[in-house]
Amino acid sequence: MVLAPVHLFSHGSTMMLGEPSEAADYWKKAGDEALANGVKGIVMMGAHWDAPHDRIEVATNPKPAKSPVAYVHPSKYADYPLNPDLPTANRCINLLKKNGFEAGGNDTFDWIHDTYLIIIRMFPDPATCPPTTLISMNARFDPHYHVKVGAALRPLREEGYLLIGSGGAVHNLYRNYWLPMLRYSDNFAQVTPPEPWALEFRQAVEDVLTHNRGPALRRAATRLMKHAQYRDAHATDDHFMAVLFVAGAVGDEADEKEEGGRLTAETWELTNMCNSQFTFGNWQAVKA
């Protein structure tokens, strides 16, 4: 069985849409590789949309707008046309229901920067952007729930769909240093080194994602929410759910034979926000 790769992208602050960075360069490279290998579509879980109660939702708005973002000139994103994939959205709903989820469409949802920031960076020419489906989180932020979401959608990889989690390795807005960005529009200023809690949790994320495969990866990813520095690194759980979604998508027993996670790029922002980028698998296996 051959599978499309899966990406875990830490999207960072809104300024990652407007400023050059190592992470942005890798997003573009990942987009180029997807196009070169005939990607069928993108299925993405972001970090800014969660459904209440026991529900999970899939975006079914045929003409979504884009929520405006701060500190980025509108020319960077306002005129970029989105390409929602309604047929695949309905397939995702059916796959989720088949796996026991209370799932449904949301035909009024407008896209937020955690998803379209990545899309624009991956495919700066909108004419090349593959059809895209957005999956919500669930507002209870249960780690096992979100692993199961990724597992339920894993079969799409066999058809050439690219699954992406857009969240953050270390993402605690309350513990960032905002002054250089607010005063000088410099989100990459590192007046001081990152604090020890940020470095510790960042390393824990890399260790889990690069040293585990298959079901062991799923178990290790969920355990990260019990790490001693987890709450320092994630004051809220929303940006960590992408990690669990990805672990579900690449954590089947069959995935033990696939290429494991690779740290492909990294960008620190606002002193303590670590935007680590990970890729699991590769397109060469699909082509073979």
Rank of each mutant, 00 (worst) to 15 (best):
L199Y: 00
L179Q: 12
R218N: 09
W197F: 12
V208R: 07
G214A: 08
D207I: 02
H211C: 13
T192Y: 12
V208M: 05
A235Q: 09
V191W: 05
G214I: 14
L209V: 05
R231I: 06
R183Y: 09
A189Q: 12
D207E: 15
N212E: 06
D186C: 07
M181K: 09
E200F: 00
Q203K: 14
A228K: 13
M225W: 02
Q190K: 11
G214Q: 10
A221N: 01
P180R: 09
R218H: 01
A235S: 12
Y184K: 13
Q229G: 00
E206H: 08
A198D: 05
P180E: 12
A198T: 11
V208D: 00
Q203N: 13
Q203P: 00
V191A: 10
P193D: 14
R213H: 07
E195C: 02
L182N: 11
T236I: 07
H234D: 05
P193Y: 07
P180W: 09
A204T: 08
L217R: 08
Q190F: 04
A235D: 14
A221F: 03
K226D: 13
T236G: 05
H211Q: 15
A228Y: 04
L179S: 02
A233N: 04
A189N: 09
L179P: 01
A216I: 05
F188D: 02
L217K: 05
P193V: 10
A228V: 12
L224D: 00
D207V: 04
W197C: 07
A221H: 04
A189C: 08
F201T: 04
A198Q: 06
T192V: 08
A233S: 14
D232L: 14
M181Y: 02
E206V: 14
M225Y: 07
D186E: 12
H234Q: 08
A221E: 03
N212C: 06
D232P: 00
L209T: 01
W197T: 03
A233E: 11
P196C: 08
A228W: 04
M181C: 10
R213G: 02
L182K: 08
H234P: 01
A204D: 09
L224A: 02
R213C: 04
L224M: 05
Y230E: 06
S185E: 12
D186T: 05
Q190T: 06
Q229A: 14
P180G: 03
Q229V: 03
H211A: 13
A189E: 13
L182F: 10
L209E: 01
P193G: 06
E200C: 04
L209P: 00
S185I: 04
A216E: 15
P194Y: 03
R218M: 12
H211R: 15
A189H: 10
L182Q: 09
E195D: 12
T236W: 06
T192R: 14
R202E: 15
Q229D: 15
R218Y: 02
N212L: 07
P193H: 07
A233K: 06
Y230G: 01
M225T: 14
L199R: 10
Q229I: 01
L224G: 00
P193Q: 11
L209C: 09
L224Y: 01
A204R: 13
T236E: 10
P215Q: 09
Q190G: 04
E195T: 14
L179M: 09
T192H: 12
R202D: 15
A198L: 10
M225C: 07
N187H: 05
V191E: 11
A198S: 14
P194A: 14
R219N: 11
F188S: 04
A204N: 06
K226P: 00
